[in-house]
Amino acid sequence: MPEHPDHVARIQAEWARERPDLDVSPQGVIGRLHRLAGHLTEQLCVVYRRYGLGEGEFDVLATLRRAGPPFERAPGELARFTMVTTGAMTKRLDRLERDGLVTRRPSTADGRGRVVALTTAGRELIDRAFTDHMANEHRLLAALDADQASQLEGLLRTWLADVEEPDPS
């Protein structure tokens, strides 16, 4: 055990003492990833709040922006891309529309469908916010050198592919 064990190592040591019959080694990875995810989310949200956005609103604006011109998608597509229910998407869109960042209109391809589009203000906001977001992500990864970051990315890609449903598209 390291000279100064981290939170997860202390938990593992306690379990090893109390339940030596169980292999608690997965906690070394899962526990640290879980704790790291919480810290990362907290640090990412600092940037979103700077632009008056929550994590969900940032995600919607980013999804519309990376769609390319004319920066629009159907609400169902947005829900799939952002992995939320259509009800949660409606709440996000209501707020973004109220703030003048998106518009909703009937679809020209399907009279029953709707289309959500970035406004000019929405595009300008997400371009500024995304620039700061990427600088923040670079800062958060600075503890790893390029080789370590690349190796970690590959490991996470492999693991995620095993636990996520394949993308139907």
Rank of each mutant, 00 (worst) to 15 (best):
residue 15 W to G: 06
residue 15 W to H: 15
residue 15 W to S: 10
residue 15 W to P: 03
residue 16 A to I: 01
residue 16 A to F: 08
residue 17 R to D: 08
residue 18 E to S: 13
residue 18 E to C: 12
residue 19 R to E: 06
residue 20 P to F: 09
residue 20 P to M: 06
residue 23 D to E: 08
residue 23 D to I: 05
residue 24 V to K: 05
residue 24 V to W: 15
residue 25 S to A: 13
residue 25 S to M: 10
residue 25 S to H: 13
residue 25 S to V: 05
residue 25 S to F: 09
residue 26 P to R: 02
residue 26 P to F: 02
residue 26 P to S: 01
residue 26 P to C: 00
residue 27 Q to K: 01
residue 27 Q to C: 10
residue 27 Q to Y: 15
residue 28 G to T: 02
residue 29 V to A: 07
residue 29 V to D: 10
residue 30 I to M: 07
residue 32 R to C: 08
residue 32 R to K: 11
residue 33 L to Q: 12
residue 34 H to F: 14
residue 34 H to N: 12
residue 34 H to V: 11
residue 35 R to M: 14
residue 37 A to R: 13
residue 37 A to Y: 14
residue 38 G to I: 09
residue 38 G to D: 05
residue 38 G to K: 04
residue 39 H to G: 09
residue 39 H to S: 14
residue 39 H to D: 15
residue 40 L to Q: 09
residue 41 T to Q: 13
residue 42 E to M: 06
residue 42 E to N: 07
residue 42 E to S: 05
residue 43 Q to R: 15
residue 44 L to T: 12
residue 47 V to G: 00
residue 47 V to R: 08
residue 48 Y to W: 08
residue 48 Y to I: 00
residue 51 Y to P: 02
residue 51 Y to T: 03
residue 53 L to E: 03
residue 53 L to I: 09
residue 55 E to T: 13
residue 56 G to D: 11
residue 56 G to C: 10
residue 56 G to Q: 15
residue 58 F to K: 06
residue 58 F to C: 03
residue 59 D to G: 14
residue 59 D to V: 08
residue 59 D to S: 15
residue 60 V to P: 05
residue 61 L to Y: 03
residue 61 L to W: 03
residue 62 A to P: 11
residue 64 L to G: 00
residue 64 L to S: 02
residue 64 L to I: 02
residue 64 L to A: 00
residue 66 R to E: 12
residue 66 R to F: 15
residue 68 G to R: 13
residue 71 F to T: 06
residue 73 R to T: 00
residue 75 P to I: 04
residue 77 E to L: 02
residue 77 E to I: 03
residue 78 L to A: 00
residue 79 A to V: 01
residue 79 A to P: 03
residue 79 A to D: 01
residue 79 A to Y: 01
residue 82 T to A: 09
residue 84 V to N: 03
residue 84 V to E: 02
residue 87 G to T: 12
residue 87 G to F: 05
residue 87 G to Y: 09
residue 87 G to V: 13
residue 87 G to L: 10
residue 88 A to M: 00
residue 88 A to G: 00
residue 89 M to W: 03
residue 89 M to A: 02
residue 89 M to F: 02
residue 90 T to I: 10
residue 90 T to H: 09
residue 90 T to W: 13
residue 91 K to C: 04
residue 91 K to I: 07
residue 91 K to V: 06
residue 92 R to P: 01
residue 92 R to L: 08
residue 92 R to S: 04
residue 93 L to A: 05
residue 93 L to M: 07
residue 95 R to L: 14
residue 95 R to G: 10
residue 96 L to D: 01
residue 96 L to F: 01
residue 97 E to D: 05
residue 98 R to H: 12
residue 100 G to L: 10
residue 101 L to S: 07
residue 101 L to Y: 15
residue 101 L to R: 14
residue 102 V to N: 13
residue 103 T to S: 12
residue 104 R to N: 04
residue 104 R to Q: 10
residue 104 R to M: 04
residue 105 R to D: 12
residue 106 P to G: 00
residue 107 S to N: 14
residue 107 S to L: 14
residue 107 S to Q: 11
residue 108 T to P: 06
residue 110 D to W: 08
residue 110 D to G: 00
residue 111 G to W: 08
residue 111 G to R: 13
residue 111 G to Y: 09
